[in-house]
Computed example of a mutant assay.
Amino acid sequence: MSLFLATLAMPLLGGLLLGMLNNPALAARLNVAVGIATFTASLGLAGVVLTSGAQESIGGWFFLDAFNVFLVALTAFVGMTTTIFSGPYMRHEREHGRVDGRRMRLYHSMFQLFQFGMLLGFTTNNIGVLWVSLELATLATVLLVSLYRTPASIAAAWKYFILCGMGIALALFGTVLIFFTSSGVLGHGNEALTWTMLLTHASELDPTVMMIAFCFLMVGYGTKVGLAPMHAWLPDAHGEGPTPVSAVLSGLLLNLALYALVRLKVL
Results as ranks from 00 to 15, higher is better:
186 L>H: 03
158 W>M: 13
105 R>S: 05
92 H>Q: 14
70 F>Y: 12
81 T>V: 15
251 G>H: 11
183 S>L: 04
99 V>T: 04
119 L>R: 10
15 G>T: 01
174 G>F: 09
47 G>K: 06
92 H>T: 11
157 A>K: 05
111 F>W: 13
227 L>R: 06
96 H>I: 02
193 L>I: 13
191 E>V: 07
237 A>F: 12
129 V>Y: 06
199 L>F: 14
219 V>K: 01
250 S>E: 04
39 F>Y: 15
256 L>H: 09
74 L>D: 08
195 W>D: 08
53 G>N: 12
266 V>G: 06
193 L>G: 08
35 G>N: 04
189 G>M: 14
134 L>A: 06
181 T>H: 07
114 F>H: 05
98 R>Q: 07
41 A>S: 03
183 S>F: 15
113 L>T: 04
202 A>R: 09
58 I>H: 15
181 T>N: 10
190 N>W: 11
235 P>A: 11
25 A>Y: 15
139 L>M: 14
220 G>I: 00
1 M>D: 07
79 G>D: 10
192 A>I: 04
162 I>K: 12
165 G>E: 10
238 H>E: 09
191 E>M: 13
206 D>C: 10
222 G>K: 09
211 M>V: 07
14 G>A: 06
107 Y>A: 03
129 V>P: 05
140 A>C: 04
152 A>K: 11
158 W>F: 14
181 T>M: 13
64 L>V: 02
182 S>R: 03
215 C>I: 13
52 S>Y: 14
74 L>W: 15
175 T>F: 08
160 Y>H: 09
192 A>R: 05
195 W>L: 15
228 A>C: 08
89 Y>Q: 11
18 L>Q: 03
100 D>P: 09
123 T>L: 02
121 G>N: 07
99 V>F: 01
152 A>D: 12
82 T>G: 03
26 L>P: 00
70 F>C: 15
218 M>W: 14
138 T>W: 00
167 G>P: 04
247 A>C: 11
46 A>F: 14
104 M>T: 10
21 L>S: 09
151 P>T: 14
133 S>Y: 10
111 F>D: 02
121 G>R: 01
166 M>T: 06
59 G>K: 07
195 W>F: 15
216 F>Y: 13
223 T>N: 01
201 H>R: 14
28 A>P: 00
103 R>E: 11
42 S>I: 01
175 T>D: 05
148 Y>H: 13
166 M>P: 00
226 G>I: 06
117 G>L: 00
162 I>S: 06
15 G>D: 02
214 F>V: 10
199 L>H: 13
101 G>T: 03
129 V>C: 11
267 L>T: 02
124 T>E: 10
37 A>E: 02
186 L>V: 01
109 S>L: 00
240 E>N: 08
51 T>V: 00
267 L>Y: 01
107 Y>I: 00
77 F>H: 08
34 V>A: 08
226 G>T: 09
244 P>L: 05
170 L>F: 13
11 P>Y: 11
204 E>H: 15
119 L>A: 08
141 T>K: 04
211 M>L: 15
197 M>P: 07
188 H>P: 06
137 A>H: 06
154 I>K: 15
131 W>P: 10
40 T>G: 12
242 P>F: 04
90 M>R: 02
230 M>K: 07
103 R>S: 03
183 S>T: 11
32 V>A: 13
117 G>F: 01
49 V>W: 10
223 T>A: 07
236 D>P: 04
